[in-house]
């Protein structure tokens, strides 16, 4: 592994005043592998594991404040998350392996990089790794970790996170600390579409550090579910996944949230599909219509056209499961 300087931050202030070209080290499950294969090349690694960001607390207004360093395992098994945000618990437990979830953190999961093999191989043209060099996935092999929603002619890599799909459905704010103070970024504005600059993946400014994720208060009377479809039963990235939250009353849908994974270049909230369900009966036909709307703007590439019907079926199936 390449050499770097190592600094241990004892306070958030120290962390955000790091040298240029620093990388924050939390779990390290995605940073250290990318340093090993020379895709990420930080001059300084700033270890933030001693910062007091490991608690989960219910706020007086009903929202849930999650420290940046809470592990994926701890978050998945938290009693409040299990009862009020089942979709998040299920999404977390469907991701990676036990060992990786034990290490991986909430903030690190938000920051994980794409699994596109052309990004990771270090030699192929990749606008994300080497801006302006082109995209080897468009016209290359683009079956499993490439998107059909939110792509551009510069990048089609799908966002790999399961946790983020659940958070996109729930709604959240991402609290960040930086040299200029603290601010909150809406979850849906945090990850950026590739557009013309796929190397810009998120809304953080240089040296800003994620300190917390604050989940919206749970929707009253909701039921939620995360369905992940993949090439094997465990320890695999999603081909398509669907995180749904539904509240019904008097035989009609009062509120519905639908977010998708494996098919979008960012954690994908299907707002128009949700809108189509509100005030309607929770029937198979209405679910299928919502699924159709969710993929209206989809664009398939050579090997991943199957993700459109697969993603639609994931929506219908997950909605059917929560209504049952």
């Amino acid at each position: 592994m390449r050499t770097f300087d190592y600094a241990r931050a004892e306070t958030t202030g120290q962390a955000v005043s790091s040298a240029d070209n620093s990388a924050f080290l939390a779990g390290g499950t995605n940073l250290l592998d990318l340093v090993k294969i020379d895709i990420m090349r930080p001059d300084t690694v700033v270890d933030i594991n001693r910062l007091p960001l490991k608690t989960i607390e219910r706020m007086p207004d009903g929202r849930l404040k999650i420290g940046a360093l809470v592990s994926n395992t701890t978050l998945a098994h938290d009693p409040i998350v299990r009862s009020d945000y089942a979709v998040l618990s299920e999404a977390l437990l469907s991701g990676a392996s036990t060992q990786l979830r034990n290490k991986a953190t909430t903030a690190g999961n938000l920051m994980q990089r794409v699994r596109c093999p052309y990004f990771r191989d270090g030699v192929s043209a990749c606008n994300k790794r080497d801006p302006g060099s082109g995209c080897s996935a468009i016209g290359g092999f683009n079956r499993s970790v490439h998107a059909v929603l939110g792509t551009s002619d510069k990048c089609i890599a799908s966002h790999p996170s399961d946790m983020c799909v659940a958070m996109a459905a729930i709604g959240a704010g991402i609290v960040v600390s930086g040299p200029e103070g603290e601010r909150t970024i809406d979850f849906l504005d945090f990850h950026l579409l590739p557009g013309d600059s796929p190397e810009q993946e998120h809304a953080l400014k240089p040296n800003e550090l994620i300190t917390h994720v604050i989940l919206d208060a749970p929707i009253r009377g909701n039921r939620s579910h995360y369905l992940k479809l993949r090439d094997r039963a465990s320890y695999q990235f999603a081909l398509a996944s669907s995180g749904v939250i539904v509240a019904t009353s008097g035989g009609v849908v009062q509120d519905a949230r639908i977010a998708l994974g494996g098919v979008g270049t960012k954690p994908w909230r299907a707002s128009r599909a949700e809108q189509s369900l509100r005030g309607k009966a929770p029937t198979q036909a209405n679910f299928e219509e919502a699924a159709r709307i969710a993929f209206e703007d989809a664009k398939a590439y050579k090997h991943n056209a199957f993700k459109i019907p697969l993603g639609q079926q994931a929506i219908v199936r997950s909605l059917t499961t929560v209504i049952a």
């Binding site: 499950t29 250290l32 592998d33 690694v45 036990t98 990786l100 290490k103």
Partner: peptide, 23 residues
């Protein structure tokens, strides 16, 4: 050596982790 196979699993504070992905 990239956190994909689990051969390097050990316990830190009784929790299983991949030791190849830790400094």
């Amino acid at each position: 050596d990239l956190g994909q196979c689990g051969a390097c699993t050990l316990l830190v504070n009784d929790v299983a982790i991949n030791s190849c992905l830790s400094l």
